[in-house]
Amino acid sequence: MRKVMFSLMVTSALVFTEGAFLVGLPHISIAQQKPIPPYAKWGQLAMKKTHEKYPQAQIVDYLHVGRTTGPQSSVEKFKLWLKDSQREFGVFVDIEFENTTEKVISTKFRETTR
């Protein structure tokens, strides 16, 4: 996993820096970069809370499932794939928060084998 993360960081550095010219890729200006999605901060929170709940497991994949919006609160839904010394498993993480203040109301976890 560390090798994969290191490879991703090196590749990102080459693509998003002047090093992009060294590998024949076009330079990407700030105007061409994709905006940060609105669920990004909730995804970071989902990963943090998952790590707290499963400290021995490593998060190996991440998926934003979607958002459910209600009149008072919304729920951001994520699926994280974890691996520990004995198994690999998925965890659905639902973060409910107030629409106006974005204060977290609850964080729910549900394990899955798929």
Rank of each mutant, 00 (worst) to 15 (best):
M1H: 06
K3W: 07
K3Q: 06
V4M: 10
M5D: 06
S7K: 00
M9A: 15
T11F: 13
T11C: 02
T11W: 06
T11I: 14
S12I: 07
S12N: 09
A13R: 01
L14M: 09
L14C: 10
V15A: 09
F16D: 11
T17S: 14
G19Y: 09
G19R: 00
G19E: 12
F21W: 05
F21R: 12
L22S: 11
V23E: 04
V23K: 03
L25Q: 11
L25M: 06
P26W: 03
H27D: 06
H27V: 15
S29Y: 14
I30L: 14
I30A: 12
I30M: 11
A31M: 13
Q32F: 03
Q32H: 08
Q33F: 12
I36A: 08
I36V: 14
P37W: 03
P37V: 12
P38Q: 13
P38E: 15
Y39P: 04
A40F: 15
W42H: 08
W42L: 07
W42R: 00
W42G: 04
G43F: 01
Q44N: 11
Q44E: 15
Q44A: 15
A46S: 08
A46M: 07
T50G: 01
H51N: 13
E52W: 04
E52M: 15
K53E: 15
Y54I: 10
P55R: 10
P55F: 10
Q56P: 01
A57I: 07
A57Y: 01
Q58C: 03
Q58E: 15
Y62P: 02
Y62E: 12
L63G: 00
L63A: 09
H64K: 02
G66E: 05
T68W: 05
T69P: 04
T69I: 11
Q72T: 06
S73Q: 03
S74Q: 01
S74M: 07
S74L: 13
K79L: 13
L80F: 00
W81F: 12
L82K: 04
L82G: 02
K83N: 09
Q86I: 06
Q86G: 14
Q86V: 04
R87E: 11
R87W: 08
E88M: 12
E88I: 04
F89E: 06
F92V: 14
D94K: 08
E96S: 13
E96R: 06
F97K: 02
E98H: 10
E98P: 01
E98W: 09
N99P: 07
N99F: 07
N99W: 02
N99Q: 14
T100H: 12
T100Q: 15
T100N: 11
E102F: 05
E102K: 08
K103D: 13
K103E: 10
V104G: 05
V104F: 03
I105A: 05
S106F: 02
S106A: 13
T107N: 11
T107E: 11
K108L: 12
K108I: 11
F109S: 03
F109Y: 06
E111S: 03
T112P: 08
T113A: 11
R114E: 11
R114G: 12
R114Y: 10
